[in-house]
Amino acid sequence: MRHFGLHAGLWLAVALILLPPLWVLRTSLVPESMAYSTDVFPAFSLENYQSLFGQKRFGTFYLNSIIVALGSVIIALPFAAAMGYAFARFQTGGRFGRFLVLSLQMLPPVALVLPAFAILRSMELTQSLTGLTIVYAALNIPFLAWILMGFFEGIPVDLEWAAMTDGTTAWGAFWRIVLPVSLPGLAAAGVLGFILSWNEFLFALVLTGSKTATIPVALASLQTSNGIQIGKVSAGVVLAILPLIIASRFIQRFIVQGLTFGSVK
C-alpha cells in the first residue's frame, strides 16, 4: 500500500513534466480548427506540418538553422580547444584570465546585439547566414573553452610527458594524445554548442532577414495579427525540439563514455 502511494506520487510528477510537451505533440497532429478542443484526440491531420513546409517555407528555415548551428560549432571548437588547453595546462592568464572568460557569460546578450549589428552592417553581413554563424561562433568560444578546460584538466599530464619522452613535440603530444583522448569531451562540447546556437532567438531576430531566418525566428513569426496559429506553432515546436532530443541522447552517451574512458591507473 505504501508502494502504491509512492508510485502514484511518482506518476504524478512524471505527468507534470511530460503532459505539456505531449499536449503540444497532440495539438500539432489535429486540424487547426480543433486545436483548442478539450477532446484528447478529436481527429488526426498532418495539415499543420504540410502548411509549415509548404506555404511557410519551414524547410528553408530548418536548413538555415542547421547551417548556422553546425557552422558556428565547427568554427568555435578548434579555438575553444586551444583556449581551454592553454588554461588547463599552462595556466595562461591565471585566475583573472579564467574569470574573464566566465564573465563574458554574465553579460546580458542584449548588450551585445546592437554592437554586433553595427559591426556586421559595416561588413555588409547583416541578413546573411555567414554573419550569424560568425557571431554564434564568437558567443560559443568562451562557453566551449570553459567546458573543455575542465575536460583537459582531467587528462593526466603524465600522458603528455610520456608522449614527449617517446619522441613527440609538445604540439605532437597535444595532437596525437590529448585530442584523441578528449574526443568524447569535444563531442559533448560540440553538441552543447549546437543546442545553444539552435535555440538562440535574440541575435537571430536582429541579424537575419526574411529569407535567412532560423527556426526560433520563424516560430515567432507564426504569431500574426490574426492571432496565434496554435496548431502550426505546435508543429513548429515539435520540429524544433526533435534534433535536440536526438542530440541529448548523444551527449549523454559521450559524457558517460568520457568519464570512464581515460582511466589510467
Binding site: 610527458w161 610520456a162 619522452t165
Partner: peptide, 12 residues
C-alpha cells in the same frame, strides 16, 4: 625513457 607511477598508457 620514463616509466611513470600512473603508467601513463595511451588509453585510446
Amino acid at each position: 625513457a620514463v616509466v611513470f607511477q600512473s603508467y601513463a598508457l595511451y588509453p585510446h
